[in-house]
Design a protein around this nucleic acid. Structure first.
Lengths: 114, 114
DNA sequence: TGCATAGCTGCGTATCCGCGCAGGTATTCA
DNA sequence: TGAATACCTGCGCGGATACGCAGCTATGCA
């Protein structure tokens, strides 16, 4: 049960076994980063507004999102680009209109809490 | 059904009624900010590690959290101060040791997803 | 073909935030 | 009483980022 990495093994602890439990509870670093990044996408009020609108009312065009949130279109575009790069939303082009929707089920579940 | 504020009423829309639906879906601005702030607390890998450790293994001392996460104690203290100010965690002093735990049920529910 | 609209991109800036470092306070024990 | 320990705080820096502005591309229509 020596889950403490070698570079921290010399440090004093209060409850050694609970430290090991905590390390096990934290789990893989990559998984941790993935979730932190996911939460980071929801941590901005404007992005959260966009995602809630898409999650609850279905596919919406960029202009409509801009009007609904009070942002101007470059800001909406930039936010959507970020979310699209993260695989959270996807856009479907119909003529010169692009309608976005939420495609990440994990994020969808988180949005269900708000 | 004129949910569009006066200052944006002049802007063009693709689907006017869906814009109103979206505004209703976004809801109150204050509630939006509250949730964005909540997600913001989970958006940092180190804070998320602290919270997961506390959530899954119960009360832990600051030093033990520092060893478990690889942070040094000032960083842990500062993170815990932030979380305590937000009402997410609470510390109980026993002698010269302070053990923290998660007290916000909303955040606890979010941590259950990771 | 010419014009208007929907959406995207690059740039510069202002802001925020997490962390390391040094030092301070409180509690325990010899 | 003095030393060691657990925790907290202030300061300063480096990095990330969200937004406004200007300009670009693509599609539809007269």
């Amino acid at each position: 049960m020596h889950l403490v990495p070698a570079d921290r093994a010399g440090r004093r602890t209060i409850d050694g076994h609970r430290v090991c439990d905590a390390i096990a509870a934290i789990g893989d670093t990559g998984r941790l980063r993935t979730w932190a990044d996911r939460f980071s996408l929801l941590a901005d009020a404007n992005r959260l507004a966009l995602l809630l609108a898409l999650h609850r009312t279905g596919p919406l065009a960029v202009s409509d999102l801009a009007v609904a949130t009070g942002m101007n279109d470059p800001a909406v575009s930039q936010a959507l680009r970020l979310l699209r790069a993260a695989g959270v939303v996807a856009g479907e082009k119909e003529g010169r209109v692009v309608r976005y929707r939420v495609v990440d089920p994990e994020v969808g579940a988180l949005l269900g809490h708000c």
